[in-house]
């Protein structure tokens, strides 16, 4: 069963994630890969680089800068992991540096249409 771990990171004004170091992230990433549960995962570039696209009913495209963070947490990255059940997924989420220091992780099962 695949779960998406959405990492909502609490960032400092300088753009760093609170309460953890790059070494913490590398260690966690290695654990996920070594455990054989890694499906995919990326760390996202800073939110100021984000762009929003919307197409209206007439097919007109609107491109805007943003979104901007409305709270201190921004979507900073994600993992998709393949584990037997929710409890195991929650354990992996709890071990992720992105669950600490005011950051949080939303765990969403990936829909299975098989």
């Amino acid at each position: 069963m695949k779960y998406l771990l959405l990492i909502n990171a609490a960032v400092t004004p300088e753009g760093d994630v609170e309460g953890c170091t790059p070494a913490d992230w590398m260690a966690y990433d290695k654990e996920v890969r070594d455990a054989g549960i890694f499906v995919s995962g990326e760390s996202l570039a800073d939110l100021v680089t984000a762009t929003t696209v919307q197409v209206d009913a007439d097919g007109r495209r609107t491109v805007t800068d943003g979104p901007f963070a409305e709270t201190r947490e921004v979507l900073g990255g994600f993992y998709v992991i393949d584990v037997p059940d929710l409890d195991v997924a929650l354990d992996w989420a709890a071990r992720c540096p992105g669950s600490r220091g005011g950051s949080n992780i939303v765990v969403r099962p990936v829909a299975d249409f098989g």
């Binding site: 069963m1 037997p84 929710l86």
Partner: peptide, 10 residues
Amino acid sequence: REARIPFRVP
């Protein structure tokens, strides 16, 4: 069922 909450004793 869909989030697969397991039937297990912690």
